[in-house]
Design a protein around this nucleic acid. Structure first.
Lengths: 226, 226
DNA sequence: ACAATGTCTTTTGTATATAATGTACTCATT
DNA sequence: AATGAGTACATTATATACAAAAGACATTGT
């Protein structure tokens, strides 16, 4: 059991900068820190009861993730998120989701397939109950399992960063999901394609799935313009 | 002329951490810092004549780019780069290059098309002369123009980070290019597809182009095993 | 009244100091 | 001789101190 213990301890310790990084990232994604809002090191450090150093290090990482924008000797701001930005992200995600799903169709294990089924069932449940938090959670899990099953670590990493961006946009501008029925149906078809090992159609459906999101967002943007 | 002066000054100023970040990144990509090699803050700071702070901040960013690996309270090491890692990267690049090239076929401007032609001509020249440095440079430029023409900023950013990884692998393990004739032919066909606006075949050719690189690398790996 | 300049404040950029942790080595004990 | 505790050393993690730059505002000259 020593292995387990040491592993637990390893997961246990987190440097302050990691804690702060996660806190800030979540705050930005969940819209608590709004696009364009200024981030001041001293202020944050005081608020969290730490010194500026770990705060600074966290901000550097957020910068590379694109969540904040730094202007040298001026300050740091929460990145703005234009419709063009989110279109760019979705354009990429369409490709990468297609890739991940087709890889998953080839490489998924039985246990993962079962997980996928379970998560989907819970997803359907939450939709029926109208539980938005639950819906979001299970939607994220659904795609996470697929990405994990692709057996491509870097793909997992990149796509989760992209997913964050979309999530952020959704929270800040859309404030929720729409067309859940359609999403549900697409998830159904994705599961079928993966479980039958049909990587070609898995890719096609996954790509459509994202493109439909694009359309939904475009229509919302246009609506808010008029 | 005041505008020009102030503009120059603006571009001129780079925080130390940026300079260090770039220096270290290049050193890793060019194989001067070898995979697994340890990176010590004090040591680097002394060597570059600065304090530890900007060095640390640079390392944080390198970590997020995946070029170094940190173990809390132990130290930082140049990331190792297994064949599996590089296969993962190429798998993604195949998709993203296909995407970028198909987008470029739709969105490229005449001036960029001319640039592309020019770079390709220079590329051919360098191949004939056997100038390896030149070949690499023009190959990079070729793909950079295509990515730029995709008009998708995030795609540009992600793919250039992936390209760095491949480049690093090439330098560290392969120490050069092979099958230049094939690459040349593929670039030719990519230009044709883009200039005729044929996004479908542009995507297909670009994907093949990367997959051929995969094959080349796989065969080299297998060769070095025996 | 308006523009230019200077100074004052705020905030970031960099350096250094202190604390905590991991590693390696020595020495004693079995 | 092998193992384990203890200790010294190396290195990172965090905090604080100091320097430099940018922005705001007031003051002064025209």
């Amino acid at each position: 059991m020593a292995g387990k213990l040491s592993k637990i301890k390893l997961n246990d310790y987190q440097p302050l900068r990691e804690v702060i990084f996660n806190t800030l990232r979540d705050a930005i994604i969940m819209g608590e820190l709004k696009p364009g809002e200024r981030i001041m090191e001293v202020h944050l450090a005081e608020k969290m009861g730490v010194s500026r150093t770990p705060v600074r290090e966290s901000i550097r990482k957020l910068e590379l993730e694109g969540l904040v924008t730094m202007v040298p000797r001026k300050g740091t701001f929460v990145s703005t998120l234009s419709p063009k930005d989110i279109m760019d992200v979705l354009e990429i995600r369409a490709s990468l989701d297609a890739l991940a799903t087709s890889l998953a169709a080839k490489r998924i294990k039985d246990t993962e397939l079962k997980e996928l089924d379970n998560v989907h069932i819970q997803f359907v449940n939450y939709i029926e109950k109208g539980n938005l938090q639950g819906i979001i959670k299970k939607d994220v899990e659904f795609h996470e399992i697929i990405y994990r099953s692709s057996r491509n670590d870097r793909l997992i990493q990149i796509s989760s960063s992209l997913r964050e961006q979309v999530q952020r946009y959704r929270v800040v501008y859309l404030k929720g999901y729409s067309n859940t029925a359609e999403i549900l149906d697409e998830h159904d078809r994705i599961i079928k394609a993966i479980s039958s090992g049909d990587s070609k159609s898995a890719a096609i459906i996954a790509e459509e799935h994202i493109k439909n999101q694009e359309k939904a967002i475009i229509s919302t943007v246009n609506k808010s313009k008029t």
